[in-house]
Structure formats: C-alpha cells, structure tokens
Design a protein around this nucleic acid. Structure first.
Lengths: 188, 188
DNA sequence: ATCACCATGTAAGCTGTTACATGATTAA
DNA sequence: TTAATCATGTAACAGCTTACATGGTGAT
C-alpha cells in the first residue's frame, strides 16, 4: 500500500536519517535524477509512513517556528523496503514529452526543428558531463568496486544508467540532425 | 494552456480524424510507447479542446447508445500544435520506478537482485524486438526515407528513439548482471 | 537591515487511474 | 446465446504542482 514516493523516502532514510527539509534536498539532487518530489508532498508522506509504523521521529533542536523532526527507519520500514525492492516490477508506462513533440515534428519548419533538437542535445550533453563527473568522483573513491550490499554501489548503478541514457539520447539527436541536414525540405 | 494530453490528441488528429474510441486505440499502440491515456481522460479532454476551438466534431453513424462523434482539427488547432511543437521544451522531470528500486538494491539478496534484473532485461528485449519489427516494416515501405514534412518520418524518428532506449537498457542490465556474478556476496 | 538558508506545514487545483454505467452490432 | 468490438460518458480517488503561510539563525 506504500507509494513510490514512500519507497523513495524509505530508500533515503535507510542510508541516513534526516529531517523533512533534508530529505527534500536529497530528493532533488542525487535521487531527483530518477524521482522527484516537492516538500509539500514529502511532509504529508512522512506522516503517512509514520502512522504505518515504517518510520519514526525524534525532536531535535533546529531553526524554525515549528519543532524540527529527525526521521529514521523502523525495523518494519526496513523490511517493507527490502521486500519491495525485488518484488514484481510494474510495467512502466512511458511519458516522454520530447517524443510527443517529435511525433508532430513534421508540421514544423526544418530550421525550427533543427533548433529544437540542438537545444535538446545540449541539455543531454550538459547532463552527461554532470553524471560523468559524479561517476569519476565515485570511481576515484572506489565506490564502483563496493560490494552489492553497500549503498554506494546501488547509487553508482543508477548513475551508470543515467550516463547510458544521456549517451543514447545524444546519438539519437545526432541521427536526427543528420537527417535534417540531408533532407531539409518538404516531401520526398 | 493546452496540456500534454491535449497536444497528443491534436498530434493524432493532425494525421487522421477519428472518434474518441479510435483515439483511445491509437493512444495505446503507436503513441502509447511514449504517452498513454485512458478513454476516461480522453473524452473530457476532447470536449475541452473543442470548447477552446482547437477541434470540432460531426455526428456519424456508429454502434453505441450515444451519438458517435468524429473529431478533426480546426485551423486554430493546427496552428496551436505547430507552434507548440518547437516551443521551448520544459525540463523533463524523470520518473523511473526501476531506478528507484535499484537505489535500494543493496538491501536485497544477490539472487533476488539477479532475478529482478533478468526479468527487466527480458522486458526490454521483448520491446526491442517489437520496435525492430515495426522499424523493418516502415523501412520496407520507404517511410524512413520520407521527407521531414511527412508524418511517417516523425513516427519513424520516435521509433528509432525507442529502439535506442531499449538497447541502452539492455547494455546496462548486462553490466549489472556481470557485476552481480563477479561479486555475489556482501561487502567488499 | 537584508538576504540566504533552515524548517514545517496547509490549500487549491490539475493530471491520471480505476471503477461504474449503458447499449448497439457482428461474428462464432 | 455468448463474446468481442464499437462507442461514450461520469465519479471517486490518488498523485503531483503551485501557491500560501510562518518564523528562526547566521552571514554580508
């Protein structure tokens, strides 16, 4: 009955306990590459996880008008996460806004289409560099050679997937740009 | 102000007019690879597009208790779609449920992890074959050599992206499976 | 003083999924 | 006659985004 967001939060807390604010930050940078959430979604979800007995909190000192809560996994939460992680994967329904555009790209001026794809390509190159740097850092620290049972390896595996994704997209952009150059006009 | 689903429907109607039921079918197979929607979402969206003047309908004979409506684009709808297609692409927030699992894969038994990744790999291989067949059909018909201004080429371009995606995922699965074989135990 | 950062929440609205509801035509 | 296909809608709910609301600490 726990949602994807719930499992994302459990996955973060299994590594290090933290406040809702802290989880919001962590959701945006490393995890945000494959799952994202705003704080307005995270706070109520933490409350739900707590009432399900999967996490618990203690009050610590911190800045702010309301008490600062530090959350951590319970044994039940750890068990739930562990069971979920290898349970049958639901068929991912894709939602790719770029492909939605490309599907109607035949309506656009060739120059505008080229601009669009160039812009998209740039974004992928930027992100590839970002991933490559992170991967290099992890590799320098030996994280890539960590055992399967260590969290660092799991993070490295998602990074590798991200790198592969960006590379495939860049290759595809180059293919399309080639076609747009060869055949800049209208019909065959 | 038009949503992604709205643009998906406009993109379908720009190719061929059709009923809501027909659009539901077309959303599931070729377009569903990168965008999906149920009929319960499509019917109200068509009504919204119509009240915005982007599509119009005529009543035709058909089976069913209610009148059968055939929708088509208006000139305004075509213009809206054409402008949108090359407008600034919003940064896609990724939502990849598999990576969410992988991020917590360090908690799983190595055997269970291997099973999961094998299962995922199989799914990608199946889909790659599906795409490859469709691509072969289009190539045999010369669709891949169509001009940029023809809808067939746009469809072919999305197919190529799909093929590339599946391939990259298979490569990544193989990399992970290799690691799981090499290092089936716990910590380093 | 002003700004950035820490910190937690609620509310309104949109998008998307699942379930409910109806009924005609055609083929096995 | 039974099932599949054509055909259109509504309702309830879950998930996610954007905006509203508050206020303390520390650095410039």
């Amino acid at each position: 009955m726990t949602s994807s967001l719930g499992h994302a939060l459990l996955g973060l807390l299994a590594r290090t306990p933290g406040t809702g604010y802290d989880l919001t930050q962590r959701m945006s940078r490393p995890v945000g590459y494959f799952w994202s959430a705003a704080h307005s979604q995270i706070y109520p979800e933490l409350a739900r996880l707590e009432s399900a007995g999967l996490v618990r909190h203690e009050i610590i000192e911190g800045a702010g008008p309301r008490p600062t809560k530090r959350y951590e996994l319970t044994e039940l939460g750890r068990r739930e996460l562990t069971e979920w992680v290898t349970s049958a994967a639901e068929p991912a329904r894709e939602r790719d806004p770029l492909m939605l555009r490309v599907y109607s790209l035949w309506l656009a001026e060739p120059a505008a289409a080229t601009d669009l794809i160039n812009q998209v390509r740039q974004g992928h190159v930027r992100r590839r560099e970002e991933y490559a740097e992170m991967a290099a850092t992890l590799e320098a620290g030996g994280t890539d050679r960590q055992g399967l049972a260590e969290p660092g390896f799991a993070a490295y595996a998602t990074l590798r997937a991200g790198l592969g994704y960006e590379e495939h997209r860049i290759v595809w952009c180059d293919w399309l740009l080639d076609r747009l150059r060869e055949n800049p006009g209208s019909a065959n």
